[in-house]
Design a protein around this nucleic acid. Structure first.
Lengths: 247, 247
DNA sequence: AAGCAATGGTTCCCCGCCATACCTTATGGC
DNA sequence: GCCATAAGGTATGGCGGGGAACCATTGCTT
């Protein structure tokens, strides 16, 4: 067979040649906005950026964006108000899964490679913790971290997940690598989906809280090794929980 | 001001709301194929997947893909041959930057956040090394790793970069997190661009080689802490070099 | 009360990309 | 020698999404 010498190993290309777009622009935009809501970056009653701004951030046209928002409105997740100081507002989730959000969750979680997610998440979190501790947190940054930590302490149970997410996301942002922060946001949205599938155990929350305290302390002390180790244990805890419940 | 209570912190959304597509499908496909070539996943003279296959992998139509390949042909990077056992073949790089590839490189490197790249890279590499060491490398996997390491040892200088990339990519693939592997491929393509901007020092290669040996040994021994530590130093070395040369 | 500014709501047209089908060339097997 | 096969090369029609301009509504400011 001619050309044999130069033939390529079969699937070496797999990591690189991923589809250029996951579905059409509409679906991807929908996914991202849902991510914002799921991550709790916009609290209940909070306002999303104006359509013109949001469309530009997402790199889609306003027309397409409006179709996305239309869907979210029909599902009762957001509400649009016109006029100055109007906008698109996030509605409080109708409690009790009346809107069939449960099926939606199952659908999203169905295709997830749990091991992939958990491993990737740990790598990012541990890395972020290490970076933060290593390159120091100047005054304002230390403040943000402490504030995020404090917010988790006096959180009502229903809002704990959201504040926990924000704490971790803060750490990722302070790592000094925007790419890391973006990737963490993506993977954390998936992790939250997974967590929504399993019961919330108060015992675990208390344990998490102690780890959070120790983690922030290590980071502010600049003790990178300690920060990494604590974060590794923290992630291992969640991972074990998820692996246990998700068959 | 009404609605003040629910207003969103200004740029908390930055990590999530990234453009749904970087440029149009054409550009993104071009970027990915260039990535394959830059990473050396297809050696000189090697064949890319058939157009129909490649188009499907990239999630674009064959028409669009052919426009991309047309550009690459015009630049003398690939060559298409018809008939059975034909295909699209990667041409050896015309030495000495005759084709103005230098400007192309500068252009690509211009907008790169070097700190972001270096940090993110280290996080992924260290994480991959730790995962590989921790969850064990079964027989076939250990073989792949050893083979990749051996290939770097007797590499001609001109091919060292490529084999080094393949070694690291192998580690990323063996981490058990496809997402990590994909992200590493992307960031490594950028790192290679950066490395192309600075001189190649033989002293550094020897040092790297010793680190590679130690790294693989630690991984195969299942010593995660050692693997992580070696990888951290390895990355720090490259990072220092790049920070030094790139202003 | 008038006007301005910021927002959501609507319409139009055009381009890029896709799906499909078909043609052409080269190689190996019968 | 013929033909099946696998690859690149070409042509056409349709439509989803983008850009831009405009309308409608609201509330602050003067």
């Amino acid at each position: 067979m001619p050309g044999d010498a130069g033939d390529t190993a079969p699937d070496r290309l797999t990591p690189v040649l991923r589809p250029v777009r996951a579905g059409n622009g509409f679906e991807e935009a929908l996914e991202q906005i849902l991510q914002v809501v799921r991550l709790g970056l916009v609290p209940d009653g909070g306002r999303l950026p104006a359509e013109r701004v949001l469309a530009e951030r997402l790199g889609i046209s306003r027309v397409t964006l409006r179709e996305v928002l239309k869907v979210l409105q029909d599902q009762g997740l957001v509400e649009s108000r016109r006029g100055r100081y109007g906008g698109t507002f996030v509605l409080p989730r109708p409690r009790g899964g009346a809107a069939g959000g449960e099926d939606e969750l199952r659908r999203r979680v169905a295709g997830v490679d749990v091991e992939d997610v958990l491993r990737f998440r740990e790598v990012l979190e541990v890395g972020a913790a290490g970076l933060c501790a290593a390159h120091g947190t100047g005054g304002e940054r230390a403040g943000r971290l402490r504030a995020a930590l404090a917010a988790t302490r006096d959180a009502p149970l229903a809002d704990y997940r959201r504040r926990d997410t924000l704490l971790h996301l803060t750490l990722a942002e302070l790592s000094g690598s925007p790419t890391l922060a973006a990737q963490y946001a993506a993977v954390r949205a998936t992790v939250n989906d997974l967590l929504d599938c399993i019961p919330l155990l108060v015992r675990n929350l208390e344990h998490s809280q102690r780890q959070h305290d120790a983690l922030v302390e290590a980071v502010l002390d600049g003790d990178a090794d300690a920060a990494r180790e604590i974060m590794r244990e923290h992630c291992a805890g969640t991972a074990a929980l998820l692996r246990g419940f998700l068959t």
